[in-house]
């Protein structure tokens, strides 16, 4: 009959320490693994957030607003009321089509000839530099009548005035991107969309988001300061030096 050997105190001590050591080692390993996994998760999520490939929402197709705003081409789904939800997309460009200083004397009818503010994320490229503007009210006198990349003919087509006109347009408005346009009330933005569509851009990628005057979101950049001065240095502005271009 086999008898159970009673362990000595030394054996007991060894056994005890071994049984204690084993779980301690595995818990250390678990902590290290957990920390490593957390680090990897954080790094990956920060990379995803930076590239925003995952966070980009699908854009609703351009759809005209009702009434006179629709006639100007202002979008029903993306406009002054919700443009904040669509800013800073890597697949889009954003342009405000107003001039920094309009030569028309809007003061004569109680207005302001200077750009008083814009939405952060929009760059300013004046529509009158892209194509000739017609039909300003008599009271404001002569508007911008200087050089423009294109002239609108009586049949509504656009004739390039410079050899570089088409290239500049393509550079400013990449065809593979969504194009968000705005101005003061939606008029210049609508004219820009007409120009682009006429020149072969895909209308389903161009949004006239309306006018800065109706914007009440949280990305407003004030250019006209409270003391009445203008901080034009704040404006990301595209100038076109027509003297450097080649006339057709």
């Amino acid at each position: 009959m086999a008898t159970k050997k009673t362990p000595t105190s030394t054996e007991l001590l060894k056994k005890t320490s071994a049984s204690i050591e084993a779980p301690k080692k595995s818990s250390d390993i678990m902590i290290v693994i957990t920390a490593a996994v957390l680090c990897v998760v954080m790094i990956v999520s920060s990379i995803i957030a930076r590239t925003d490939n995952v966070t980009l929402k699908t854009l609703p197709a351009p759809e005209l607003s009702e009434g006179q705003r629709g006639e100007l081409g202002i979008d029903k789904n993306i406009n002054e009321k919700n443009i904040d939800e669509y800013l800073n997309r890597s697949d889009s460009v954003y342009y405000d089509m107003r001039m920094l200083e309009d030569p028309a004397a809007y003061e004569s009818i109680g207005g302001d000839r200077y750009l008083s503010g814009f939405i952060d994320g929009f760059e300013v490229i004046p529509y009158p530099y892209l194509a000739s503007v017609k039909g300003l009210p008599e009271a404001v006198g002569q508007g911008y009548s200087g050089d423009a990349l294109f002239t609108i003919t009586d049949d509504g087509s656009y004739v390039a005035n410079y050899q570089e006109s088409d290239e500049i347009l393509s550079s400013l408005f990449p065809k593979d991107k969504n194009i968000f346009l705005m101005c003061g009330g939606g008029g210049y933005a609508g004219m820009t969309k007409n120009l682009l569509v006429n020149k072969g851009w895909d209308p389903s990628k161009i949004y006239n988001v309306g006018g800065y005057w109706f914007y009440e979101g949280s990305n407003n950049v004030k250019v006209k300061e409270d003391n009445g001065t203008y901080s034009f240095w704040k404006v990301p502005y595209h100038n076109i030096d027509f003297n450097k271009l080649t006339k057709k």
Binding site: Q68, L72, A104, V133, L136, G184, G185
Partner: peptide, 9 residues
Amino acid sequence: DNAGCTTTE
């Protein structure tokens, strides 16, 4: 109205 805007002309 709003001055400086083509939409009101």
